[in-house]
Design a protein around this nucleic acid. Structure first.
Length: 247
DNA sequence: TTGCCGCCGGCTGTATCATG
DNA sequence: CATGATACAGCCGGCGGCAA
């Protein structure tokens, strides 16, 4: 039975506290920023602390089932399996579950002023956007978008323009405040605008210049003077997302 | 003395940009 | 024009030293 040392125990305990502090699943990176920036539990350089101290420790805790930690205590939204071959066991189950319990979902966009999509860079924070922006389509960016993905986005926006004639399209973008974080949407927009016959508003909701001081953010793991979406607290992220949606 | 810890590097796959 | 670095989110393994 693995027994972490005093310091490690303290870090794991605080990690569990942060994990439990929000109503959605979080990734390792999010917890690390809380432990480093808020709790100051690491003396080492940020990048070193993340790769050499934090990740191995929390990997071990989950694999060894230390305390309440389990392999699924942290979420990975970036990998997905595709299950096939399932269905109803028989006609009776189909009538019971397939038909009678089916909800009739009506389109909400037809009544709204705009068609809105949220594009965001910090892919693993999907749960957070689902929580603060229910009923809005979420379009994750994992680093630079692939060519096919950009084409898919462009064609979808055309379809939306056709489905909701005259309704303006608004894209709200959220991502890191660093060089790459600014390039990712710029690169994607270049192709998407080329391939999309309809126009749309693109609004970078954050992180924008000034947000780092407004929210008193700690710096990125990888680069000083860079700021990551995961540095935002639950409340700050909620405030930022909802204010952009309502604005 | 054993095993935990810190440190370092590499791997997955697609894309863009800086450098030489 | 070719190569390397970086972005995304982690997981895995080896080595050497120190602590329980």
């Amino acid at each position: 039975m693995w027994q972490p040392r005093q310091k490690q125990q303290q870090i794991l305990e605080r990690g569990w506290y942060w994990k439990e502090s929000v109503p959605y699943g979080v990734n390792a990176r999010w917890i690390f920023y809380k432990l480093y920036d808020y709790d100051h539990l690491f003396d080492a350089d940020k990048k070193q602390a993340y790769h050499n101290l934090f990740l191995p420790l929390f990997s071990k805790a989950r694999k060894q089932f230390y305390g309440n930690w389990k392999p699924n205590s942290l979420v990975d939204d970036s990998r997905e399996e595709f299950l096939n071959g399932f269905g109803y066991f028989n006609e009776e189950e189909w009538l019971e579950i397939g038909i009678s319990k089916q909800e009739c979902i009506l389109d909400k966009w037809q009544y709204s002023k705009y068609y809105v999509e949220i594009w965001f860079e910090a892919f693993a924070m999907k749960g957070q956007f689902e929580y603060f922006a229910p009923n809005i389509s979420l379009v994750p960016f994992k680093g630079d978008a692939s060519i096919e993905y950009k084409w898919r986005v462009a064609k979808r926006l055309e379809q939306m323009a056709e489905r909701y004639p005259g309704k303006p399209i608004k894209i709200l973008y959220f991502g890191d405040l660093d060089q790459k974080g600014l390039e990712i949407p710029k690169n994607a927009l270049r192709d998407i605008k080329n391939w999309c016959s309809v126009s749309f508003d693109f609004i970078r909701g954050g992180l924008n210049l000034g947000d780092e001081t407004k929210f008193n953010l700690g710096t990125s793991i990888d680069k000083i003077s860079s700021y990551q979406w995961e540095s935002l607290s639950h409340e700050q992220a909620g405030e930022l997302i909802t204010s952009v949606i309502n604005g």
